Computed example of a mutant assay.
Amino acid sequence: MEVFHKIVDIQNELAEVRKNGKKIGLVPTMGALHDGHASLIKTSVAENDVTVVSVFVNPTQFNDKNDLKNYPRNLEADGRLINNCGADYIFAPSVDEIYPEPDTRHFEYPPVSTVMEGAHRPGHFNGVCQIVSRLFYITTPDVAYFGEKDWQQIAVVKAMVKDLNINVKISECPIIRDKDGLALSSRNSLLSTDERAIAPTIYKTLVASIDFAKNHTVQETHDYVVENINSVNGLKVEYFSIVDGLTLQDVATWDTTPYVVGCITVYCGKKPIRLIDHIKYKEQ
């Protein structure tokens, strides 16, 4: 496995790979890797001739400076995990390497980019599109792998790929959860022992709401989830949206669409740590 920090170096390497007719998989990450990332990398390794894992904490997608400052970073540990998963290359550029000048491009794909995370984190998805498009242009992958935990992000990236006419397949991979149901996230490492103990309440409540929803309205189900999570000291729901799985627009009744998803963001602890998750009430 080789590690590259410069754009020109990884591009030269991948040009040789392409010349040999090999298929390239890309796993974009912000580091602080865990078993969820490992599953993406292993899937890419199994499906492609060559796998590139990018490790870059992208400043343009953070609208909270403290969140950016506190985001966990450990390239040495990340490298061990990536190597153990069988990837071929790590691309770990500096901020100046990716953004030698400010990226002034503006991306907006309503309605998918303007609701939920888009509404609560202004500029977030614009930053996501800036870095993901840059990574696609730099590495020219055949397939890029994203975890379903960041479910809305996948919808936005797909819209961007279509808009920019980038020739890459977006592969959605299932959420990886801990034994107690908590969705694996780099931010989980920031939780204290007490905070980690209450965090699984989020998913447990979402799962319980599936049965609750069978005999209750959308609004009643929404209130059930919010009230149950907020009743736990140390947890506070930022938003819980029950939406059409394709348009990401709120639904008023269960029969509005055949695809209904509940998306939630919860603040955990005193710091607090922002945790996201979702549950599918109806699937296509």
Rank of each mutant, 00 (worst) to 15 (best):
G86H: 02
P72V: 04
P28A: 00
Q61K: 04
T265L: 13
T265G: 10
G36M: 01
F212S: 10
V52H: 09
G86Q: 02
V237W: 04
C173L: 13
S39K: 07
V218A: 04
D223W: 13
R105P: 02
H5S: 10
D96L: 08
N20K: 09
L135G: 10
R187G: 01
H106E: 15
A183Y: 07
A38D: 11
N126R: 11
D194M: 08
I176T: 14
D255E: 14
Y203C: 02
S209W: 12
E97Y: 07
S186H: 14
L275N: 11
V3E: 12
S241G: 07
P72T: 09
Y145W: 02
E97S: 13
P93V: 13
K23D: 08
F4C: 01
A77S: 10
H278Y: 15
A77Y: 04
V95T: 09
N63I: 08
W254F: 14
F146E: 07
I279V: 15
G118T: 08
R73V: 13
I242H: 00
V143Q: 15
H222N: 14
T257S: 10
S186A: 15
F4G: 03
V225S: 06
G269W: 07
A252G: 13
I273W: 01
D194H: 10
H37I: 11
M1A: 08
F4K: 08
V45Y: 02
M116G: 00
I138W: 02
Y259A: 00
T114C: 10
H106S: 06
V243Q: 10
Q249T: 12
D49M: 01
A77L: 14
T257E: 11
N188H: 08
C129V: 08
A77K: 15
P111Y: 03
L206G: 03
P111F: 01
C263I: 15
V243P: 03
I90E: 07
G262H: 07
I229K: 09
A46N: 12
G234I: 00
T221C: 05
Y71Q: 05
Y267K: 12
V237A: 08
N70F: 12
E47V: 05
Y267N: 11
L164N: 00
V115Y: 12
D250A: 05
P72I: 06
G86P: 02
D194P: 04
D150K: 04
Q249Y: 06
V112M: 07
L190P: 02
T247L: 06
H216L: 02
V132W: 04
A159L: 14
K179I: 12
R73D: 08
E97P: 03
G123K: 05
E16C: 05
S189C: 13
S209H: 04
Q219R: 09
V55S: 07
K162H: 12
P102S: 09
Y203M: 12
L190F: 12
D244I: 06
S54Q: 05
V55Y: 09
A144Y: 06
E101G: 07
A213I: 00
S94Y: 11
I176V: 15
Y99V: 08
D250H: 13
I138F: 09
D103R: 09
I10K: 10
G79M: 10
V52A: 10
A15L: 15
I90Q: 14
N83H: 13
I229Y: 09
P111D: 02
T257R: 15
G31R: 03
H278T: 05
K65W: 04
